[in-house]
């Protein structure tokens, strides 16, 4: 991670952040992927993933975080999440119904089970994670650029 001394918080916060931010991100991904076998799921995991980026913004300033995930890319990921979720729902017509679970469901309590639910979880986590990050960045940047975008 960058060695900027001028921006962000003190060296202690930066060091701790450097150590923990990856873990937070990983934990978020874990929550998403195990959404169908344990408590959690797309929304909770997506929020945790966002928090890792918010963490970066708080410790290092917004430039470092925006270098990792720019606003345009966050917006792209958000839309992809929504479209992915909708396509899963529409593909359900193959199984006869909108939203039907057309993939074999497998054994309960296994990672690869439950048909479309893990995929939907991933889509939701993309949508929520990127969307929440967009909201955060938009609110942070709103003060600096009066014309900046304002999204839901």
């Amino acid at each position: 991670m960058s060695r900027e001394k001028t921006k962000g918080m003190s060296i202690i916060v930066k060091t701790i952040t450097r150590l923990t931010v990856g873990l937070v991100l990983l934990y978020g991904i874990y929550i998403v992927l195990h959404g169908h076998v344990s408590p959690g799921g797309g929304f909770a995991g997506g929020v945790i993933i966002t928090l890792s980026f918010v963490h970066l913004v708080l410790a290092y300033g917004k430039d470092t975080a925006l270098k990792k995930l720019s606003k345009a890319r966050a917006s792209f990921l958000e839309n992809m999440g929504a479209i992915l979720f909708l396509s899963i729902a529409l593909l359900g017509f193959m199984g006869g119904y909108f939203f039907s679970n057309f993939i074999p469901k497998g054994e309960p309590f296994h990672l690869f089970s439950a048909g479309i639910i893990p995929i939907s979880n991933i889509a939701i986590s993309l949508k929520v994670g990127a969307g929440l990050f967009s909201i955060f960045v938009a609110l942070v940047l709103l003060k600096l650029k009066p014309t900046s975008e304002k999204k839901k």
């Binding site: 609110l139 709103l142 003060k143 304002k150």
Partner: peptide
């Protein structure tokens, strides 16, 4: 969450 985010954004615009 969506409502609050929108309200906060509007509040910031009002302040501006």
């Amino acid at each position: 969450l969506a409502t609050t985010a929108l309200l906060v954004a509007i509040a910031m615009k009002i302040y501006e």
